[in-house]
Structure formats: C-alpha cells, structure tokens
Design a binder for these strands. Sequence first.
DNA 1: AACTCAGCGGACTTGACTATCCATTGAGGT
DNA 2: ACCTCAATGGATAGTCAAGTCCGCTGAGTT
Lengths: 144, 144
Amino acid sequence: MLLPQTAEYALRAMAQLATLPEGEPVRTADLARLAGIPESYLSKIMRRLVSEGLLTSERGHGGGFKLRHSPEKVRFIDILRALDVDLEENRCAFGWDQCSDSHPCVLHPAFVQLKEAHLAWATRTTLASLAAKRRVETKKKKEG
Amino acid sequence: MLLPQTAEYALRAMAQLATLPEGEPVRTADLARLAGIPESYLSKIMRRLVSEGLLTSERGHGGGFKLRHSPEKVRFIDILRALDVDLEENRCAFGWDQCSDSHPCVLHPAFVQLKEAHLAWATRTTLASLAAKRRVETKKKKEG
DNA sequence: AACTCAGCGGACTTGACTATCCATTGAGGT
DNA sequence: ACCTCAATGGATAGTCAAGTCCGCTGAGTT
C-alpha cells in the first residue's frame, strides 16, 4: 500500500465529490456507496476533513458534505496533511539523530529521492487535474 | 512512513552489510547495533532474507551472515519483494475490479504515476549505488 | 409538537504488524 | 567429550491503524 488506507479513502471521497454536480450536499451513505468505502468509517474521515477545513457540512434533512474550495485549489498534499500523513518527514531512514545532506547515512540519498518523488506528486496533483487527465485518456482511447 | 518498518530494517541491514568488508560473516548482534534495529526482530528478518536467497548464513562460532550476491546485483525491489512488499500491485485505488488505462477510475492516472515513481526508484537503486551516491555527496561537501 | 433525517462524538472491537523470549540445532574451540 | 557461540523456529505479547456501534444534536417535514 503506497498510502495508508485512511488517506486513500479520503482521496477517493474528495475525488468523487469533485466529479458530482456542485450545489447540493452529498450524504456520507451515497459517497460510501459510490467510492466503495465502509460507511461508518467514511463518516469519521469526513468529519476530520470538515474540521481540517477541506469540507463544509450541513446537518439534518437535506444535509451532507460539500467541497469548501474549488477543485483546482485542492492539492493531494492538502488532503494528506489533514490526515496527518507527513510527506515531508525528516526522520532518518537509518534512525540517526543527525542525518542530513552533509552528514548522510548510507540510505540517505536513496530515501531523499523517494521522498521527493512522493512530495512532488502530492503537490502537483489536484482534484481538478484528475478530471483533466481522465478526459485526455478517454480521448486517447477513442482515437486509438 | 514510506515503507513498512520491516522493509526499512531490511534495507538498512543489507545496506550496512554492503559497506562492511567482504569475506567474514557478520553477526546479527553487530548488525543490529550498527543499524539501530532491535536485535531479536532483526534476527527474524535475516532468516527471511536467507530463505529468499539474498543472504547466506553460517552457524556456530565465527558464524553470521553474508551477502549472497555482489552489491551491484541487489536492487531494492529484490529486497522488498523478499518481504512481500508488492510495488507492482494492480489493485485499483478506487476498489474497482475492472480498472485499467482504458477504463480508468477517477484516481487511476494519479495513482499510476505514484506507483511508477516507486517502482522506478526501487528498480534503479542498488546496494552498490548507495555507496556511489554517498561518495558523490561527500565530495560535493568537501568542495563546497 | 412529534417525527425523520443526517452529521457528530466517543467507546469499543479487530487484526495485522512489530517486537520479545526461549528452547533447539549445528559448528568451532579447548 | 564438553563448552561456547550464533543461527533457527516457534510461541507469545504489545501496538496501532482500521473498522463498528450507538446515543446525541441540530435541521427540516408534517
């Protein structure tokens, strides 16, 4: 698993929300069904995303969740951070207290590469870019 | 954590082994101290690496572990595979049964990118490349 | 006012990963 | 032969993410 299950669920839910028409709030139950996530667990994740400022919620009849910001503004790293997935962690892969570019452990350069690849991906990918890429791929398929 | 703890320990141990002089076997206790890994747990990991063909072991007085292959031949992906870390998993990030480039789910293109970055990293990084990169960085440091 | 709906919050359970411990086996040293 | 060393294998225990449950709160409907 490249990302914790909880983080993957959050990305799914946010991505699904971005594809649905704006305006009316979406219920957890519907989102859970659409994105294949256990409903009761998704409920916890949604609350987390609300408290971290990524979603807004409305209670009672006709309630549900909406994206707080437009899809172009929501990067994957913002979603991951909201769930405490720290892609910038500086913990040395060798367990050293003092490990840096100038005092590298044996694994340092290799792990820096992997970490930077992750970070670059999470920074450049937004909810809006998903839909765009999907359009491109579908077009390719039709042309091919 | 980018990789499971067990996998990280294995990479540490293998990397440490690659930096030590060849010829005489290294004891688990020494490796555990050098790489900061709980000794009893490392013991299990070493056995696994032996049974997967990455290490050879000698018992009794003067015994320990040696790399089975030269460092240039040992890619990170080989070590990860030995511990059942599957970087090529094709499980759809959306939980779909049928998810592919031609029938992508919303997250498909994004996750393919991340997966390929991981795979490329683990395929191109070998135990030998670690030492090489470290030399380059140390040189940079002296020059800078 | 009573009812239903849907988010909220916390307690609880489960299972996989991590880690420890100990008795056993095989090899060398005395 | 006997002792010590170090890997082996299995049993055991701890930890944390993942998932479930249930009562509560606030909003709309009748």
